[in-house]
Amino acid sequence: MAKTKKIIGSIVSHIFLALLVVIWLVPILWLVVTAFSGYPGINKAHFFPTSWSLDNFKKIFLHPDSVVQYMTWFKNTLVIAIFTCIISTIFVLMVSYAFSCMRFKGRKKIMTFSLILNMFPGVLSMIAVYFVMKSIGLTNSHLGMIIVYSAGSGLGYLIVKGFMDTIPASLREAAKVEGASEFTIFIKVVIPLCKPIIVYQIISSFLIPWGDFVLAKLMLNSGISSDWTVAIGLYNMLNRSLVNNYFSVFCAGGLLVSIPISILFIIMQKYYVEGVTGGSVKG
């Protein structure tokens, strides 16, 4: 009796889970099927397209127009992402080593202060950031975007520092006894041991420019579409006057950018948990 009750309970919970999965994946499914539809606009009457084709992808790859410059946007975002990721990773490693492996006066205070500073959402001071960049002539430039994304990255040291804390101090001391400078220890001892967390740091900083919408919209405001990143370009396609002619193209573009981004996100999601709970939980 108890056993059948258990089985029924298990079946019910599986059906419930499946139902939830359907709810969560319906929009994604809609994205995929619309991307393969045979017309560029939005189909308001049917969930599945009434005709199928690869036209939207062809438009993206082969026939860019003034609205769809997908390949240029992709290239822009990729360049910004690569440089952001290099600078941020180096900055974060530098800050983490200083805080984790070295002992100096005021270390705890500086750490506390930078953690608090990091908790303030960047969205707030963005107008002021915009002014600062404008006065040095770096709005509407990709260099400006790279600076905006990576300059303050040193504040996000918490996860990498937490990882460095787990490296036994005896390793560093042994190197010091043999006459190695802190610089040598940093490059030759600590960094090789930090490989997994460096991968995390590289991926997460690489993802920032792909997912960011607000800063890019504010900084790249000239209206010249060849300057844009993928996020703004795709957003622009859903403009009231354009949505009826470009919705399926938007879906195709969204799908194309989502595939690599999703893969990277799934690789790094196990560290995500650790970051949020401040290291008190191992993901």
């Binding site: 994205l31 189909n43 859903l238 938007f250 969204g254 893969i263």
Partner: peptide
């Protein structure tokens, strides 16, 4: 479930906005 959040937010949100549009699906 992770697949649903792995897609960049601006894609899913803009999509959902049209999903629930006044003349939407």
């Amino acid at each position: 479930f992770i697949v649903a959040i792995a897609v960049p937010q601006f894609v899913t949100l803009l999509l959902v906005r049209n999903f629930f549009g006044d003349q939407g699906i």
